[in-house]
């Protein structure tokens, strides 16, 4: 009996372990396959886009031999150059202004109690939550009413363009900057500011010499987010721009809707390279700062997803 048991039991347990291991490796294999599929899914379209931007065929999906002609077209195209110029100016200006306003807003909300603070807090969150399309509609109606009013009051005949685009980008970027900076401020030890003031620093000097260096990674992260949101935005910009000026994404969007051409391929590749360059730059900055977070992933994720539908 015991002998039989001895012979049976080890065998049984081996079988069970083997079964377990097989199933385990099966799950593992499936997980790895899924991961590779995701990466293929992410990168194959981009790779194909890059490849076809060098194709001589007028048909965007057909290989017709290697050419740099579409890049020549891109370089020679003054509308695109103008759009790039507008994009860059809007992005830089709106980033600078929203970083200043957003950082101040974050500091006020995180460190002070004042009347209207809760309302301000809610107002600060709304541009993050609000759908792109709604915000776009808001800007359209606002500028139409606002310019009518100016016309009525001063006889000024203003058109939508660079200024209205910048104004609308600041309106959403302030919130994103402030959310990222706030997360950083919340994680900062308040005693550091008290210590600075105990060591004879005025309020301003404590902010300048202690608070600001401490939240710098957050401010940089907020700036980067603002910059890419501004450079990427299509929907809001489309409604805030006019014949006077338009940004590159809006211009390209218009081209795509009229029908795809290989020129769009080359412009797209350039835009892609620019945004990947920004990512790598941000990763590099993060690393050189000792891995300081660029902001709460939630905020960044929400920002990215909100502003790009």
């Amino acid at each position: 009996m015991t002998a039989v048991g001895d012979r049976l039991l080890p065998g049984a347990s081996v079988a069970r372990v083997g079964d377990f291991a097989r199933r385990f490796s099966l799950t593992r294999g499936a997980l790895a396959a899924n991961a590779w599929f995701v990466y293929l899914f992410f990168y194959a379209p981009i790779a194909l886009l890059v490849v076809f931007s060098f194709s001589a065929d007028r048909n965007v999906g057909r290989w017709g031999g290697f050419t740099l002609g579409w890049y020549d077209d891109f370089i020679g195209n003054t509308s695109i150059q103008n759009a790039i110029w507008v994009s860059l100016r809007v992005a830089l200006l709106s980033t600078v202004i929203s970083v200043v306003l957003g950082t101040l807003a974050a500091f006020a909300i995180e460190r002070f109690r004042f009347r209207g603070r809760q309302a301000f807090d809610a107002l600060l969150y709304l541009p993050i939550i609000i759908p792109d399309v709604t915000m776009a509609v808001m800007m359209l109606l606002f500028f139409s009413e606002f310019f009518d009013l100016l016309n009525l009051l001063f006889g000024a005949d203003l058109r939508k363009g660079f200024a209205s685009i910048t104004v609308s980008h600041i309106a959403f970027n302030i919130s994103f900057v402030s959310v990222v900076v706030r997360a950083r401020l919340a994680g900062m030890d308040r005693r550091l500011e008290e210590a600075a003031m105990d060591l004879y620093a005025s309020r301003w000097k404590a902010f300048r010499h202690v608070t600001l260096p401490q939240i710098a990674p957050g401010v940089a992260g907020g700036a980067l987010l603002a910059l890419t949101l501004s450079l990427d935005d299509v929907v809001v910009t489309q409604f805030a721009s006019g014949p006077g000026a338009t940004t590159l994404p809006v211009y390209v969007f218009g081209l795509i809707r009229r029908g795809v051409t290989p020129l769009i391929n080359s412009v797209s590749v350039v835009m892609l390279v620019a945004s990947v360059g920004l990512v790598l730059l941000s990763l590099f900055v993060q690393r050189s700062r000792g891995g300081g977070a660029v902001g709460p992933p939630g905020a960044v994720a929400a920002g990215r997803s909100r502003r790009r539908s």
């Binding site: 030890d189 005693r191 008290e194 210590a195 003031m197 105990d198 202690v210 401490q214």
Partner: peptide
């Protein structure tokens, strides 16, 4: 008086040294 105008200094709990 505000803290920066007082002739006293503090050793804070957990020190609050400036990390940067």
């Amino acid at each position: 008086l505000p803290p920066n105008k007082r002739p006293v200094n503090t050793v804070f709990q957990a020190y609050a040294l400036f990390p940067h």
